Amino acid sequence: MELHAKIYIAGHNGLVGSALLRLLRSRGYDNLVMRSRQELDLRNGEEVKAFFDEESIDYVFLAAAKVGGILANDTYPAEFIRDNLLMATNIIDSAYRSGVRKLLNLGSTCIYPKLAPQPLKESYLLTGELESTNEPYAIAKIAAIKMCQAYNRQYGTRFISVMPTNLYGPNDRFDLNDSHVLPALLRKFHEAKEKSLPSVQVWGTGSPRREFLHVDDLADACLYLMEHYEGSEIVNVGMGEDLTIQELAERIQRVVGYEGDITFDTSKPDGTPRKLADTSKLFGMGWEPAISLDEGLTSTYLWFLERQQVAQV
């Protein structure tokens, strides 16, 4: 991408979009286009079409999505499938019709079957049943992938799809009602430390294995793929290694400095038993992550503390 090309980041205020914005600005890209949710409703096809017609966008990073953890997915399944389908459909179609040169569509490794072999290869897509707790979200993401592939085949577009593993970092959601496991645990341990609570309760058995990638590494991978990858097939982005939820909780406990006990509420769902992305395709292209989990947890906790202090002023 040329430094002066017009680049639209859909979802620039979110976890992934804000990381892309930071990275692109740091690399010297100076023609970035953003619209807040209040300025542009991506679920409204007419608004999205008018925006693309007016702006003449060159490149698109499609990072806008309705996201959440197990509780949010289970509570709002209609919103998760509807909003994500509408946003992807409107942006992908308007990008084609307005002559966008290249688009990167961000998905998630939750698109893979619940009981797929590990690690998750890109070829496992649509080979089995999805995890029921996030099926509506996953189906919307799969539809976006297939839409990009169909437009490439029929219209000759350059739309690529990237499947990141579990993400964390600055601008994550730390609300216990709709956040993912890592930020939820970070907040739980912090509050337990502040209140001198005797224990922190973790959902499930602690046995599921998960992989966690710092969002700044994902942003770097997205820019790398935008510049080096032209295929229609999806590409996984991850660390290439995982750990149990119990091990994650213990690491967060150390980072926060909490000295109490960890307990597990086995009445709560575990979700998918294991979710490790096969990253051999991306690593084979010459890209690898740079931020270790311990380093990323420490920097994310410091960011969280700064936000807490600002909120208290």
Score class of each variant (00 low, 15 high):
Ala19Val: 02
Pro113Gly: 09
Leu115Arg: 12
Asp261Trp: 04
Ala219Val: 10
Ala116Arg: 03
Ala50Gly: 12
Arg210Gln: 08
Gly45Thr: 09
Tyr301Met: 07
Thr127Leu: 12
Val256Arg: 03
His12Gln: 09
Met239Lys: 14
Trp203Ile: 05
Leu86His: 03
Phe52Pro: 00
Cys222Lys: 06
Asp172Asn: 13
Ser98Cys: 13
Leu225Asn: 03
Glu241Ala: 15
Val215His: 02
Tyr224Lys: 10
Ile145Cys: 06
Lys195Phe: 07
Ser108Pro: 09
Gly107Arg: 01
Ala65Arg: 07
Gln149Thr: 04
Thr75Ile: 11
Pro198Ile: 03
Gly257Gln: 14
Ala65Gly: 12
Ser161Pro: 01
His190Met: 07
Leu125Cys: 09
Gly240Ala: 09
Glu306Ser: 13
His4Trp: 03
Ile291His: 09
Pro269Met: 11
Ile70Ala: 12
Glu247Pro: 04
Gly169Thr: 01
Ser199Lys: 14
Gly107Gln: 00
Asn90Gly: 01
Asp265Arg: 04
Gln38Cys: 09
Ala10Arg: 01
Lys102Val: 08
Ile111Asp: 02
Thr205Ser: 15
Lys49Thr: 10
Gln246Cys: 10
Glu47Met: 12
Leu71His: 11
Glu46Arg: 11
Asp172Cys: 03
Ala144Phe: 01
Tyr137Glu: 10
Asp216Val: 00
Ser94Asp: 11
Glu241Thr: 13
Ala95Lys: 00
Thr157Val: 08
Leu243Asp: 03
Tyr301Phe: 14
Asp278Val: 03
Leu297Ile: 06
Ile139Met: 15
Arg43Phe: 05
Glu227Tyr: 10
Pro77Trp: 06
Glu295Thr: 13
Leu71Arg: 15
Ile245Gln: 12
Trp287Met: 11
Lys268Asn: 06
Trp203Gln: 09
Val162Phe: 07
Leu213Met: 10
Thr298Leu: 14
Glu227Ile: 10
Pro183Phe: 05
Gly238Pro: 06
Arg158Trp: 10
Leu276Glu: 11
Ser123Cys: 11
Arg101Val: 08
Lys6Phe: 05
Phe304Glu: 03
Asp41Leu: 06
Arg274Trp: 08
Asn236Pro: 05
Glu259Gln: 13
Lys6Glu: 06
Asn134Lys: 09
Asp270Met: 02
Gly204Met: 06
Ile160Trp: 00
Ala19Gln: 04
Lys188Leu: 09
